[in-house]
Design a protein around this nucleic acid. Structure first.
Lengths: 119, 119
DNA sequence: CAGCATCCTGTGCGATACTG
DNA sequence: CAGTATCGCACAGGATGCTG
């Protein structure tokens, strides 16, 4: 590896990988991105298997990191909508190559219609 | 979000995020990629803070997933060299956008010379 | 509806000591 | 040198029940 321009330092990941790398991290980011806006219970049913506590926790973290935006409506029953922030959208775009890579080889189980990703 | 071509399914991640998303996952992949070939103890010192058991565990997982290659030399003292497989290299390339994204905003601590990444 | 509180389990991962 | 073995803790995250 002589070519120095090919070398990349991963330190920036230290802070981000902790939240993004979690089991549901990218899934949540992507799901919200796919729909534009999503409510709590919509996320609950889209992300089959996640527990309410976990989802709430992740949403809070993402909100704190300003990856997603939280909009509250004073209605009864209450309505809350989540959407990606500008930065969250950039993140989503940034991980597309990774998703494409992951979808290339079959060492995973596809359990939903993944027809929308171009292989 | 009307434009369907903008929708991405993350299912492929299910299998991969478990290993890649771990604390040292990307760091290891990248470190090996940066050097081309690396030995066990070289990795130990490059990845400051990792424990021998954890490193050994990750290397095995990556080897099983065929992201890295393991070459043994029958010498005394023994020598083992790790390098990225073709697929591992593709992965490394695929996460570059993510790294660049992560390096854009300062919600992380840079504790080594990160001069090599173009912001 | 949108969560929070609580309990509980699995395991990621560090520390340390030992081996072929 | 390149790991393995063992211990231990912190924490992710599921299940369930409750609340404004």
């Amino acid at each position: 590896m002589k070519n120095r321009s090919n070398v990349i330092c991963l330190c920036p990941l230290d802070g981000v990988i902790d939240t993004i790398g979690k089991k549901w991290g990218l899934l949540i980011i992507n799901e919200i991105g796919n729909h534009g806006k999503l409510r709590y219970n919509e996320l609950m049913s889209e992300l089959k298997g996640i527990s309410p506590s976990t989802l709430a926790l992740m949403l809070k973290e993402f909100e704190k990191e300003e990856l997603i935006r939280r909009e509250t409506f004073n209605e009864i029953p209450p309505r809350v909508e989540y959407s990606l922030s500008t930065r969250g959208n950039e993140l989503r775009k940034a991980i597309i190559p990774f998703i494409k890579w992951a979808s290339k080889k079959g060492n995973f189980t596809v359990h939903c219609a993944c027809s929308l990703i171009k292989k």
